[in-house]
Every structure is written in C-alpha cells, then in structure tokens.
C-alpha cells in the first residue's frame, strides 16, 4: 500500500526546483511513475511530498544540431524517442533500443529522465547513451551542471545527483565519422529487462583500425559499467573475430555480475562475453560503411 503524501504540481521547471530544494529530504520527483509507483507500493520509498514534473512543457523537447548533438528534455517519453524520424536518422541505435524497452504502455508514459535517474543497472538507455559518450544536465535551485554518464552512477540505484538536483536534459554528442553503436540485451521474453546487456561503440580511423571503442555493460555489476579492459583490447587493433573474442573474454573477466534465479554468475559472464563479441563486431561492420 502506498503511504500518504502531499501532491505538488509545479508549473515550471524552476518552480519544481524550488519545491525540490524545500523538500530535498522528504520529497520525491515523479515523472512517468512507471518505476516510482512500483517501489512506493512496495513501501521501499515513502516520500511525504511528491513533485510531479510529468507535464512540464519546458522539460519536454528534442533538438539536434550537428555541433552539439542531440538534446532531450527530461520528460521526453520513450515513445517520442522511438518514433522520432530525426533520432532514427542520426542515432538509429536509440530507436532500436527503445523498441525493445518494455511495452508500448510503459514507453508511452515513462520518460528518459526518469529512466536514467532511477539508476537501475538493468536499464536500457544508460548503456547505450554511455557508450555514445552521453551526459545529463542536472539542475538545482542554485544552478546547473553537466555530468558525464561515465560518472553518473555511483552505486546500486544511486547517482551523483544531490538531493536537491534533478535531471533536466539528456545530451548525446554528435556521432563521429566512421563510428557506430550497437546494443543488445539478453532476455527470455522479447522486451523484458536484460539479464545482461552490452552496448558497443566502435570508431575507426581512415585505415580501418579501431580508433576508439566504448563498451558498456548493463546489469553486469551494481551499476551500468564501462568494460575498460575490453576497450583496451579493441583500441588500436585491426579488428577481426579473434580480437572480438578476446574483447568478450576481457569484458567477462572484468564485470561483477550477481547471481539470481535467472542466471548464475558464471552464465552471466558467459553471456557478457558472447554479447560483447557480437556487439563489437556488429558496430564495427556498421562503422565501416557509415560516413
């Protein structure tokens, strides 16, 4: 049973931040509520004030320019991203990821800001965005700062945000030339949360050598993590199956998955190795043909 709370409905982001400043210890932001209401029902969080930012127009936007890349207001829904022709053209992997994120109902109401803030290590957007070098702009009543997703996740369901801060924008840098990102989660049902997931971005130089690689693992530790050892295997290498295999093994070795009823720790490592190999290769193949 959800415990009682006072419902606050700010009219602007600024007002929301003021309320948040006031209730930073006993308040909670609700956006789509897709995750929050479940944990509230389980009694895991019991805020006294709930600040509803779902309908804030000033946080609901999507823009792209070749220099700054993609900017999405925090309340942009999953479905908006999925259906955006612009996103499909510039960042097709985001659309592919969104199409497999939960069901249409959840994507219709759930938001990108809420998803990233919820900090579930099994979330889909974080690995993909992190792999593309994404960041979030967080704001409080006293100012704004941009945090790279690399530094955003600190522990299980914990982020680098202070209690008076909220995500206002998600930023994805423009895609470099000869670069591609691929993402896959392993799950039992088509759009389930991943048992593990891997996002891989491969950037090639003119000679077809791997100039940069960012491998990000979902649900392979208490937070979304970079697989830096795997990246080392890839960067500077002339890519082939043997290298992908080695990268997979490196990722499997460096992750810290936790066993549960769906998969043992060993099996999770095995899956990480397979998916890393596959995604790195898929990204490479895509990067070769991309401008």
């Amino acid at each position: 049973m959800i415990s009682d709370f006072t419902y606050l409905k700010p009219g602007s982001a600024k007002e929301a931040l003021k309320m948040l400043a006031e209730h930073q210890d006993d308040g909670k932001i609700i956006c789509g509520g897709q995750s929050l209401l479940i944990i509230m029902r389980q009694g895991l969080v019991t805020p006294e004030y709930v600040i509803d930012i779902k309908k804030l127009k000033d946080l609901n936007y999507m823009t792209f320019d070749p220099k700054d890349g993609l900017k999405m207001g925090a309340t942009t829904t999953h479905r908006t991203i999925e259906k955006s022709a612009m996103v499909k053209e510039k960042y097709p992997v985001l659309v592919e990821m969104e199409e497999k994120l939960a069901s249409i109902q959840v994507r219709n109401w759930g938001t990108i800001g809420g998803n990233l803030a919820h900090a579930d290590a099994a979330g889909d957007p974080a690995p993909v965005l992190m792999s593309m070098g994404g960041s979030v702009k967080v704001a409080s009543a006293s100012g704004e700062r941009v945090i790279s997703l690399d530094d955003f996740y600190t522990d299980l369901f914990e982020t680098a945000m202070n209690h008076d801060e909220m995500i206002v924008e998600v930023i994805v840098p423009p895609r470099p030339a000869k670069s591609a990102t691929k993402y896959q989660k392993f799950n039992l049902l088509d759009s389930d949360q991943g048992i593990v997931a891997v996002a891989a971005t491969i950037t090639l130089n003119g000679g077809g050598v791997c100039k940069d690689a960012r491998i990000v693992l979902g649900n392979a530790a208490s937070t979304t993590i970079r697989a830096k050892e795997a990246e080392k295997v890839l960067i500077g290498a002339k890519l082939d199956d043997a290298v992908f295999q080695k990268a997979g093994e490196a990722a499997a070795a460096e992750c810290q998955p936790v066993a549960d009823i769906h998969a043992s720790e060993e099996y999770r490592r095995h899956l990480i190795s397979i998916l890393t190999k596959r995604m790195a290769k898929a990204a490479w193949e895509q990067a070769k043909i991309s401008g």
Binding site: G33, L37, D52, K54, R79, Q105, V106, W109
Partner: peptide
C-alpha cells in the same frame, strides 16, 4: 487509453 495512448492505469496517479 489516455489521450490516444495506451497506458497502464496502475502505473499512473489519478491526479496525473
């Protein structure tokens, strides 16, 4: 269906 979108009514506060 809320404003033409399918939504799970158990995942939304009525006030929203």
């Amino acid at each position: 269906v809320v404003d033409d979108m399918a939504v799970k009514a158990c995942s939304v506060l009525a006030v929203q």
